[in-house]
Structure formats: C-alpha cells, structure tokens
Amino acid sequence: MVISIDCETTTLSEVTLVTVRLDNDTPVDRDVRLRNCLGGPVMPPRTDGVPEAGWDDDGFETVVPANTTLAVGYASPAPERDPPVVVASDERATEESDANAATPDAVVRRLGRATPPRDAVPPAAVEFSEAPEIPASDEPSRPDVSSVGVDCEPEAIRASRPVAPLADDEQDAEERPRPTPPDRPLPDSVETWLTTVQTRLDYAERLTEPSVSAATEVLADVGGLEEVDGLQASVDADAEQLRTVAERAVALADRAAETDVALAELERLA
C-alpha cells in the first residue's frame, strides 16, 4: 500500500466523528477507497442534502493527487472502534473520473437547490391554490406542536396538511387575552414564527393542570398523546428564544432611536 492513512475519532452526543488524513508521497495520482469499520451507517458530508461526490453506504472513494495530503471526515451513530476506517483499495488512478458526471446529485451539488426557504412556507399551509385534494372535515387536523424550527422535509410535508383555526369555537378562548395585531404589520417571517409559538403556547396553557375533559379535548385537537411529547421542551425553548429576541430587539430599537441621518448636509456636499 502506497498511501498512508491517519485517523482520529471524537464522540459527541453518541455520534462518532471520524477525521481521516490521506498522504500520497508518490509522484502519481492514487485512486483510494476507504471502508467504514464502525458498526453503524456512514453519515457523509452533504451539500443541499446530497452526499458529496465519492461517498456511498460503505465508505468513500477519491483520487488523491500526487504529492498531496487529503483530509476527509464523516460521522456515524456507532461507538468508536479502532481503526474506524481502513483503506480498502489503493491503485494508480486512471484518467476516467465520473465525479463530474451529469447525475441529478452532481447537478444539485454544483448548482444548488432552488427550494423555497422554510420561512416562506406558511406553518398552517393555508392552500392559496385551488387545493382540490383537501378533504373538508373527514381527516382530523394535526397541528404541529412540538417542532422548534428544525429544518426537515417531513416538516414540510406535514405543513401541507390543513390545520383548523385554533379554539375558535371555545368559550375559554374568549376569556384569555389574545394579543391584538400591531398597527404596523411585522415582517412575514417574524409573524409566522410568533404565530407558531403562540399556537404551541396555547396548547401548553390548555394542558397546564387541565381537567380530564379539557385534556381529552386538547389531545383530540392535536391528534393524540405522541403529538404532545416534547411540547414542554419546545415551549421552554420558545421562552428562551423569545427573551433573547426581546433583548436584542430593545437594544436595536434604542440604537435606532439615537440615529439621525444628516441628509441635508449630505445633499449640500453632493
């Protein structure tokens, strides 16, 4: 074997991070294949959700140029093991390389996805198109109560389901003071976030020391006990985030109040 390999592992939150250094001291390019030896799946580095070129379920294949050192890394949810990765093959590189082939994955890596940002998607996904597939009331609505802005695809899928307006027909909803919309509308993304937080908070409030009937009602609204799992943690995280935002907003507002753009002087100078 011509190539020399040097590995390091670190464990963070039960995930093993593997760093590999490949040294090619020879004057020729080497085609190297690495095999993962950890007892779990390979979690490769990704661009826009697509694994970087060369990665597959077993490991990584790449060309290490002549007299060059190449560093790569991956993660695995398996415990550390020595060695975490081995060189499965090491051959003189041939001219052919399909890394730049026009596969959809390669295109996504090179051009980037054009997916709309998460903030642009209404959380309750009120369909503004003709939306013919949405049943009127047969399917129970299941609002998302536990996620805290984690960016994942199932989220978007779930968001596409219709959600009933919260507690519109309930008496206690009237007793609870609800924030009135401000005179100046907030930016859409902020409004969306606050509405999501408010929805979660409403459920959490209704589940704070609830009567059996009230609890049953809420659980029926959100779609079962498993939907409430993690609600408290989400609401706690919301509280922390809201305080951070409030502090920053006040500081920025103070700074904004102190500014006075000297337009007249600038115009005179121009």
Binding site: P104, A114, T115, P116, V121, A125, E127, S129
Partner: peptide
C-alpha cells in the same frame, strides 16, 4: 405541477430523473 410553497419545499428535484 402543484402551486403551493409547501409542495415545492417537499419536492425532491433529484427524483426527477
């Protein structure tokens, strides 16, 4: 093709091939 942003977000363009 659908018109919703949620649909556009959930669609995986690599599956188009």
């Amino acid at each position: 093709c659908g018109r919703s942003l949620a649909g556009a977000r959930a669609a995986d363009v690599t599956a188009l091939a």
